[in-house]
Amino acid sequence: MSFLTAVPLPDAFETRTNATFEALMWALSRPGTVQDLPAPGSAGIAEALLDRECRAFCDDPALADRIATFGAALVPLPLADHCFLALDAGLDRLAQIAVGSALYPDTGATVVAQARFGTGQRLRLTGPGIETLAEIALDGIAPGFWALRAALCRYPAGFDLFLTCGAQVIGLPRSTTIEVL
């Protein structure tokens, strides 16, 4: 290994995207737990995950412009592998989110949305990553969303959800069963 001379150092981009991914990884591994992102909002998540191989849908024009700089193509919702949306209204269109198939579950979309943690609708979570059960409270999500999610996510098809609240993130993979309390 004498061809490796100096140990490379991570730049700010590498450090930030690495930390963002680690937060997302633990969030999805332990559904319902709150993980800390290095920066608030969804743009950092897009930066850590998206590039020219991705197709993204985004209903926030400012964020859409940021996403375009990462190289991702901006496409209509049914074609997107990553969706940056508001979930507080407009549930009708959500039925168009790509859920993949039993043959290719990986083509189910990753959905990123904002919510307020610790207040509002209480949810009970069970499934992988949760020892027995977990309870969380979320505000800013339309009341019919959870029923719609249950109808769309026919495991192993489905979509995976990241909710941000400032610089915090909660992950809800399709494998989580959510009971509205």
């Binding site: 997302l24 579950p105 990986d106 993979p173 399709r174 494998s175």
Partner: peptide, 14 residues
């Protein structure tokens, strides 16, 4: 980034 995307999907469908 590709690894990250696929690692998240792998977690989502154990």
């Amino acid at each position: 980034r590709e690894l990250r995307r696929k690692m998240l999907k792998a977690i989502a469908v154990p």
